[in-house]
Computed example of a mutant assay.
Amino acid sequence: MNTDLFEAMENLADEKGIDREVLYEALDAALVSAYKKNFNSKTNVRVELDPSDGELKVYSRLKIVEEVEDRDLEIALEEAQGIDPSYEVDDVVENEVTPRNFGRIAAQAAKQVVTQRVREAERGVIYNDFVDRLDDILIGTVQRMDPRYLYIHLGKIEGKLPINEVMPAETYNVHDRIKVYVTKVENTSKGPQVYVSRTHPGLLKRLFEIEVPEIYEGIVEIMSVSREAGDRSKISVHAEDPEIDPVGSCVGQRGQRVQTVVDELNGEKIDIVHYSEDPVVYISNALSPSKVIDVLVDEDEHATTVIVPDNQLSLAIGKRGQNARLAAKLTGWKIDIKSESEAEEDGLLSSNTASRNDDDLVHDDEQ
């Protein structure tokens, strides 16, 4: 008698991609509520749904007790055993009480409750979809903006891109397509909230993972990333196989791979350097494109003093200290840079150090 109702539920499950059990649980709760409301019943009831033949039945449930205190909820043992001698105390007696017109009433009453459950289930599906995309890149379309956020259409949901996580000098118009990095997914009372970024270091890492097959396959590993979005970044890379050049893999033939990433980041400069477990070599590489004479390591303070040629001091420090700052973030070491003449005055240069060839330490060219 309720075939249309069940068919609607099945179609809804298929259309929304929602588990049928979730919908039928919602329908069950709605029908129990509808029965009690429309028939002014205080009795506990159970609804039995049979989608295969469209049957819908309602059963009253009375608990068997020695002495009845509430006839809406209980039945005496003696009376229950008059129905079936096998009944005992604490058993439940069920009796079908399905009203003749219950199908129509139930469908009307269930609509609002089921709609709410469907909305919740849809939100759950969306939340799970986007939780799986955390720390990943998505392509979206700019929908609108306000003083706090750019709102990015990501298919099933609108992502929030904080204004302070838009790269400097980037401007967007409605309907512009952009790549964003998913930083946070929250399940709130208003539904799932997805936050994205254009400045997060993870965006740079994921772009290289997409662009460089050796990284995707695990042959080359990105060890660290430091980034000042829109201006300059550094990444360190490593390959276990000595036959593999990790820097060359990231740069690509004629610089094509790194240039693709640079273009996506609107010209952001990217230094790609070799990772090393030796802090002397690693920090020397990280300060690329400057050359390094020596690196003095203080393990206790996790700090280093780097000595560079006099004519390389400005290059090593970088504009507004950027090169040194990025190198420190990349390596995790404190870095104090001194020119060769300063080091001599401070007695930091030994005769061996002073005579060392600049090329004794490994350096990587700026990309």
Rank of each mutant, 00 (worst) to 15 (best):
G202I: 00
Q143A: 11
V220A: 03
S233V: 01
R198V: 01
V261I: 15
T183M: 03
I178F: 05
A169W: 02
I235H: 07
Q253L: 07
D231A: 12
R177L: 07
R227A: 00
R232H: 06
K184Y: 08
L161Q: 13
E170N: 03
R257L: 04
S226C: 04
R177N: 02
E186P: 03
P162K: 11
K179G: 04
D176A: 09
T141L: 06
T199W: 10
G191Q: 08
R198K: 06
P162M: 03
H200G: 02
M167T: 13
G248S: 04
V225D: 08
G159A: 10
Q256N: 06
D146S: 09
M167F: 00
Q259S: 06
I215Y: 05
E221D: 06
Y151K: 08
A239N: 09
S249A: 14
Y172K: 12
L150Y: 15
G155I: 13
T188C: 11
I244N: 08
S233A: 14
G255R: 03
K179S: 14
Y181L: 01
H153I: 02
N187V: 07
S224A: 15
R254V: 06
T260P: 00
S236T: 06
S197H: 11
D135G: 00
D132K: 15
R177F: 06
D135L: 05
K156V: 04
G155P: 11
I244L: 14
E158D: 15
I244K: 11
R144S: 13
Y195L: 05
P242Y: 11
E228W: 04
V225Q: 09
E211I: 11
I139Y: 09
G218F: 06
R257M: 08
G155T: 09
T141A: 13
T199K: 13
N266P: 09
G155E: 13
A239T: 03
G159V: 13
M223A: 02
I157A: 01
D245A: 10
E209A: 09
S233W: 03
G218K: 04
I210R: 02
E165T: 13
G218C: 13
I222K: 13
E209I: 05
V220Q: 05
F130Y: 15
E221A: 14
L265Y: 09
K179H: 12
V194D: 01
I244Y: 05
V262C: 11
I210Q: 07
V247K: 06
D241S: 05
E186G: 04
K205Q: 03
